[in-house]
């Protein structure tokens, strides 16, 4: 009986959390647009979320491209197929690693910061005092961060893929001596704009939405104590990563599963 009650209360808590998450999302997104007021706020947040994540994205993209070229070369060279290094690096980056690794890094670098910031605003009662002044915190605080995340992450994923391909060029062509012409030309004849590049961008838009939503909701819903904020930050990173990896499988199955 006791465990039944616990199961029930856990289920109810899940559902009410999902309801509150939807409430935060609709409250932030569905409103009369006020471009004069909100575009500067969004740009400010894009600086925090996007520009400040740039260094980690560029460095990881470069090294992941370099490692993939190195690993791919040692296998492909046995078959005399090292000319296929270009498409291998480009396709894995554009289809999978670009969107997914960017989303994971974004959750760790920017998502956790968003949660902690909004959680601390709640703990220090900045959000309630905004409400007292008839300023809707969902629109003033949450909406710019949501938009900034959703715009920044696809841009970061594109940069990640491009830098990774250059990194692969650095190791594959400049160091290991794959022919530069075949690196680029076989890549060009293999990679499709719609099939590979656009699908990767669609993936990163979905991940951006999910990661930012989780980060913002966890901050907005945090228990307003120092312990609660630390827990919410941890949950943001864990839930975002799991959601990204799970969704990635679903999206890949939809996009590339059936020929």
């Amino acid at each position: 009986m006791e465990w039944l009650a616990r199961l029930g209360s856990a289920t109810l808590a899940r559902f009410s959390a999902m309801g509150r998450a939807t409430f935060v999302l609709t409250g932030a997104l569905i409103a009369k647009p006020q471009p004069m007021k909100h575009i500067p706020l969004t740009i400010q947040q894009m600086y925090v979320v996007g520009v400040q994540s740039l260094s980690i994205i560029v460095v990881s993209g470069l090294f992941i491209g370099m490692v993939m070229a190195l690993q791919g070369y040692t296998i492909l060279v046995d078959y005399g197929a090292e000319g296929s290094l270009g498409p291998m690096v480009a396709l894995s980056l554009l289809r999978e690693l670009g969107p997914v690794v960017t989303a994971l890094l974004f959750a760790g670098r920017a998502g956790s910061a968003l949660t902690a910031e909004i959680g601390l605003m709640k703990a220090t009662e900045q959000l309630s005092s905004m409400e007292m002044m008839a300023v809707d915190p969902l629109r003033r605080v949450v909406a710019p961060r949501l938009w900034a995340g959703m715009i920044s992450m696809p841009l970061l994923a594109i940069i990640f893929s491009a830098v990774g391909i250059l990194g692969g060029h650095l190791v594959g062509v400049d160091w290991l001596g794959v022919d530069a012409g075949s690196y680029w030309s076989i890549m060009q004849s293999t990679v499709e704009w719609n099939e590979d590049v656009m699908n990767g961008i669609i993936k990163s838009v979905v991940f951006a939405f999910v990661c930012t939503w989780i980060a913002i909701f966890k901050g907005y819903d945090a228990v307003p104590t120092s312990e609660g904020i630390s827990k919410a930050t941890t949950q943001t990173v864990v839930y975002s990563s799991l959601a990204v990896l799970g969704l990635d499988f679903v999206l890949t199955a939809i996009m590339f599963g059936i020929e």
Binding site: I43, M46, Y47, G50, V51, L54, A90, L94, S152, L155, L156, I158, I159, S161, A162, V163, I165, W184, M187, Q188, S189, T190, V191, E192, W193, D196, V197
Partner: peptide
């Protein structure tokens, strides 16, 4: 300015993908 540079960088990366990587 920094956000503008960020967006410009992303567009440059997209152009590189379009012109050098994909066969659009």
């Amino acid at each position: 300015v920094l956000v503008g540079a960020f967006v410009a960088l992303a567009i440059a990366a997209l152009l590189m993908l379009a012109l050098h990587v994909a066969n659009q």
